[in-house]
Design a binder for these strands. Sequence first.
DNA 1: GCCAACGTTGGC
DNA 2: GCCAACGTTGGC
Length: 149
Amino acid sequence: MPYWLMKSEPDEFSIQNLERLGTSRWDGVRNYQARNFLRQMLEGDRFFFYHSSCATPGIAGIGSIQRTAYPDPTALDPDSPYRDARATEAKNPWSAVDVAFVERFDSTLTLARLKAEPALAQMPLVHKGNRLSVMPVSESEWRAILAMR
DNA sequence: GCCAACGTTGGC
DNA sequence: GCCAACGTTGGC
């Protein structure tokens, strides 16, 4: 089963929010490469929940895919900041998935620590300038990160 | 199809 | 708040 990493700004949606809710829609992805990864996700896949653009960026926990990709309703919602004027009901280019809470780490596994781990050197996440918000994680990377908790 | 300009991401 | 890096847009 594939593994993933997804970024969210905790001010918008955090692992604590997901823990409280249990499940949530993961929407608002507006990058084609990230969207294509969303579409590859299978029910039951697990992902690292990454907090970005905050005081302590890093992996804050784990979630799982509860529902595979479907058209992202926020693209059609005039009140949503993720609205895409080019999207229509018949032709919506964007996808969302539903996710479920799995685990919250005792403390955030910081980007600084991830960067310092040789086993993770291949991850796009630790490379300067990387902006991909949804990315695959190899099984060896997944295990290395779990061991760092 | 090239590429400059622009807007956004995200660490610091 | 700054700014480097990147993806997207649009003129040509």
